[in-house]
Design a protein around this nucleic acid. Structure first.
Length: 118
DNA sequence: CTTCTGACTGGGA
DNA sequence: GTCCCAGCCAGAA
């Protein structure tokens, strides 16, 4: 259920989080894709990463932040020592397969955005 | 108001 | 394919 009461009244910070919550299980997306859906430009990818970085543990259970990886199909976590290994386990649990170098096939698991929800 | 940092991306070597 | 450098956006001090 996607509630879009006032998307324009919601700050980019929260918009990115709401978008991540819209990601279906078994699929992954990139920061640039989220920024592209929000503002139409991949330039805000950094802001998206910053938004997820501010997620609390409680939000981390509500927001599938682990389904968000960089455009290379690799995990970028800054707090790797805190959740990189955990993120890989969560993705594998969703059905995502990792390559020899922990690289994900965005061509197969890459989320195209709300297109699949239209 | 200005300044810095940040879970990023793109292009070049 | 990988690695390095520079650029853009948003939020906090």
């Amino acid at each position: 259920m996607m509630q879009e009461e006032k998307p324009e009244t919601i700050p980019f910070f929260k918009q990115a989080i709401e978008m991540v919550k819209c990601i279906p299980a078994g699929e992954v997306t990139t920061y640039g894709q989220i920024s592209l859906l929000l503002s139409g430009t991949v330039r805000g990818a950094r802001a998206v990463g910053y938004a997820l970085a501010a997620l609390s543990e409680e939000e981390g259970k509500v927001v599938p932040w682990w389904r968000v990886v960089n455009v290379r199909g690799r995990i970028s976590n800054s707090n790797s020592h805190h959740g990189a290994t955990r993120q890989r386990a969560l993705l594998e649990d969703e059905g995502i397969e990792f390559g020899p170098d922990e690289c994900i096939d965005l061509a197969r698991y890459g989320w195209d955005g709300p297109e699949g929800h239209f």
